[in-house]
C-alpha cells in the first residue's frame, strides 16, 4: 500500500533493517514470531481475504478464457491508484472506481454468442490496456519524485495495511463473493454452453458484464496486496493449476481456493523473513505449483500410455 503509514510495529521493524527477522526454522516459533507484529497479522488477514476472492473469480476467468481481460483490469488498477494519490483521495477508491469503469468498457465491447467477435473484443481490451499504461506513465511523471510509491503500486507491499483497510477488503470481498455465488450456476452454463444457455433464457450478455465487474472488484482488491503487475499470480495460477489437475467443477473450484490460500500464506510468510517484495514470492510459489501440476499430469499421461502400449504385447506373448 502506498499510503504506507509505516507507523507502529511495521515502522520499528523496518527501522531495524528490512529482512532482519531471522527464521529459526522451527515452524511454530517462526509463525509465533510473525504474529507478534500487528502489521503481519493485518497482512495475513488481507492476504487470506484476497486469496479467496481471487481464487473464486479466477476460476471462472480461466474457464471463460478471459485472462486477457483480467490482465487489463489489473494493469488499469495502477493508473487508478496513482490518480487517486494525485487527487488526494483514498487509494482504495481509486482502485475500485477505475477497475469497475474498465470492466464496463470491456463488457460493452461486442462479443457475439458464438465467439465470432472475439478479435474485435481483444482489440478493445488491448486499447484499454495501452491507454491505462499511458495514463499511469502520465501520473507518474506528474508525481515528480515519489518513485518509491510507484514501485509498491506495481509490485506490491504489505507493510502498511491498516485494520481499517482489512475491513474495507473484507466488505468488498463479501459483496463480490455473494454476488458470484448468486450467479454461479447460470454463469457456468453461459461459459460452457452459451447457445443453449441463451435458448433457456439465461441472460448471457448481462451475466458476462456482471462477471467482468466482479472481476474488476477482485482485481482492485488483489492489486492492493500484490501490486498491479502481479495480480495474475493469485488470479490465474491457482485456477489454471487446479483445472490441470481435475475436470470436476466442484473439486477444481475447491482446489483453486486452497492453492490460492497456500500461495498467499507462503508468500507472506517467506517475505517476512526476507528483504524482497511479497509479490515476487507469491508469483514464484504460484508458478511452481503450476509447473508441478503440469508435470504431474504429463507424467500420469505418459505412464498410462506406456501401460496401454504394454498390454497388447503381453496378450500376444501369452496365448
Amino acid at each position: 500500500m502506498v499510503s504506507a503509514d509505516l507507523a507502529g510495529a511495521a515502522g520499528r521493524w523496518l527501522a531495524s533493517a528490512p529482512g532482519s527477522a531471522v527464521p529459526t526454522w522451527n515452524l511454530v516459533s517462526d509463525i509465533r514470531q510473525m504474529l507478534m507484529f500487528p502489521f503481519m497479522v493485518h497482512a495475513l488477514r488481507a492476504g487470506t481475504i484476497v486469496a479467496v476472492t481471487a481464487g473464486a473469480l479466477g476460476w471462472f476467468m480461466v474457464l471463460r478464457r478471459q485472462s486477457f481481460a483480467g490482465h487489463t483490469l489489473a494493469i488499469v488498477s495502477f493508473p487508478g491508484a496513482a490518480g487517486a494519490i494525485l487527487l488526494g483521495v483514498s487509494v482504495s477508491i481509486g482502485y475500485f472506481a477505475v477497475t469497475i469503469a474498465a470492466a464496463l468498457v470491456i463488457a460493452a465491447a461486442p462479443r457475439s454468442i458464438g465467439g465470432r467477435a472475439r478479435s474485435s473484443e481483444s482489440a478493445i481490451i488491448g486499447t484499454v490496456q495501452a491507454f491505462a499504461l499511458a495514463c499511469g506513465a502520465l501520473f507518474v511523471s506528474l508525481f515528480g519524485g515519489f518513485l518509491n510509491g510507484v514501485t509498491d503500486l506495481l509490485f506490491g507491499s504489505f507493510l502498511g495495511i491498516s485494520s481499517g483497510q482489512v475491513l474495507v477488503l473484507l466488505a468488498a470481498a463479501v459483496v463480490t463473493l455473494a454476488l458470484l455465488a448468486l450467479i454461479a450456476r447460470p454463469l457456468f452454463f453461459a461459459t460452457v454452453d452459451p447457445d443453449v444457455a441463451a435458448a433457456r433464457g439465461v441472460p448471457v450478455r448481462l451475466l458476462s458484464a456482471v462477471f467482468l465487474v466482479l472481476l474488476g472488484c477482485a482485481t482492485a482488491e488483489v492489486s492492493q496486496i500484490t501490486g498491479a503487475l502481479l495480480v495474475f499470480a493469485l488470479l490465474v495460477m491457482p485456477a489454471a493449476t487446479a483445472q490441470r489437475l481435475t475436470a470436476r467443477p466442484a473439486l477444481s473450484f475447491t482446489l483453486t481456493i486452497a492453492i490460492a490460500l497456500a500461495t498467499a500464506w507462503l508468500g507472506l510468510g517467506v517475505a517476512f523473513f526476507s528483504a524482497y517484495p511479497v509479490g515476487f514470492y507469491i508469483t514464484t510459489f504460484g508458478f511452481a505449483g503450476f509447473v508441478l501440476a503440469s508435470a504431474w499430469r504429463e507424467g500420469g499421461r505418459l505412464v498410462r500410455r506406456r501401460a496401454r502400449r504394454r498390454t497388447p504385447s503381453a496378450v500376444v506373448a501369452a496365448p
Partner: peptide
C-alpha cells in the same frame, strides 16, 4: 457436467 447443465443450468445460486 455439460449434460447436468441441461437439467438445472439456468437456476440461480450454487449447487
Amino acid at each position: 457436467d455439460v449434460v447436468r447443465l441441461g437439467s438445472d443450468g439456468e437456476r440461480w445460486g450454487v449447487p
